[in-house]
Design a protein around this nucleic acid. Structure first.
Lengths: 114, 114
DNA sequence: CTTTCATTTCGTTGATTAGCGAAATATATT
DNA sequence: AATATATTTCGCTAATCAACGAAATGAAAG
């Protein structure tokens, strides 16, 4: 039960939901997510840590960056059911739409210097 | 988005999850849930209020008692997807199983005096 | 009408959590 | 090897939340 509670807890913060919706579009690094959410880098890192510890996302080193992406298909049976649901949810939410637009153009090379 | 966050928040407490699982068996009143969970009545009432405000459950006056039951089928599209999922989850969890046994025999007439 | 009773609401407390800046870390770059 | 960089971790603060007992509420029972 602790695992299920953990997953729901991870999903019960608006910014973490936004991150999930952003990662549905493409994998992103911390600085890109930071740019879109307009939070401190440390805050974003903490949120990502919570999502990773709930098995909702995975990370992968990519040169200077760490890419985060959805854990789909997931080994965890609960995550494997929730992520497809979340894919269909909130398509018309204004904030989610704005984030999506930004995700299309946000560029780690521009943010972090050439 | 606020609504989705609200639902996940409602589901992110172990006792509230237990309540949901109990209500999958049959409708229950506050004193019956209180008996099973071994919490203060005020705490149970508060939990039920959170679940009702998230559209996960409904209430109905029944003589001296207020019955609470799952909001299924739900008008809310998110709840209508999550409740069937939760029906299948945690079938082997020890605490959930113990609660289920107690739900079978808990009796409001015995708890609240004849 | 009065008393009883199940539930809800309120106020308090200690625990948890989201946000931030600073410090530390792990590498990539020079 | 030294420097730069993206990220993570740490420490702190203010806000939020679960638990409880007390008080209030809305009927049901007598």
């Amino acid at each position: 039960m602790r695992e299920v509670v953990k997953i729901f807890k991870a999903l019960s913060d608006p910014n973490r939901l936004r991150i999930i919706k952003m990662l549905q579009i493409r994998p992103l690094c911390v600085c890109e997510i930071t740019e879109v959410l307009q939070l401190a880098t440390s805050t974003v890192s903490k949120h990502l840590s919570i999502l990773r510890d709930s098995d909702l996302i995975l990370d992968e080193k990519d040169g200077k960056w760490v890419n985060y992406y959805l854990n789909h298909p997931a080994a965890d049976p609960h995550v494997s059911k929730l992520l497809p649901l979340l894919e269909k949810w909130l398509p018309d939410d204004a904030i989610i739409r704005q984030d999506a637009e930004k995700v299309k153009s946000v560029d780690r090379n521009a943010i972090c210097g050439v």
